[in-house]
């Protein structure tokens, strides 16, 4: 399973949607994921990929980790995995 597919799976589960309802361009907001749901998604991502995501709920847009849509999240994960193995 690709990173993108895994991310879609995590987000779909959190949003109580089918994976087919989640696309690369979906934003968390339009999927109905609130701030608590976002924290749970990040936790699930950290567990699934064994990475640490730099994210502070007080300044969600400030960190290096872009959460603007599914594609951006996937890109962030790829980078964190590369940094870890690199």
């Amino acid at each position: 399973m690709s990173i993108l597919d895994k991310v879609i799976g995590i987000i779909a589960e959190q949003a109580l949607l089918e994976t087919s309802d989640v696309t690369e361009n979906s934003t968390l907001e339009e999927l109905g994921i609130d701030s608590l749901g976002l924290i749970e998604c990040i936790f699930a991502i950290e567990e699934a990929f064994d990475i640490t995501v730099p994210f502070n709920a007080n300044e969600p847009t400030k960190g290096d980790f872009d959460i603007s849509n599914v594609k951006a999240i996937t890109g962030g994960i790829e980078r964190l995995i590369a940094e870890k193995t690199g």
């Binding site: 924290i39 990040i42 936790f43 994210f55 502070n56 709920a57 007080n58 400030k62």
Partner: peptide, 20 residues
């Protein structure tokens, strides 16, 4: 830590650059 509302450097209430 799990809630991701904690600051790593200082508690700065009401300051625009507060971070938890």
């Amino acid at each position: 830590e799990g809630l991701r509302v904690m600051s790593k450097d200082a508690c700065r209430p009401f300051s625009a650059n507060r971070n938890g």
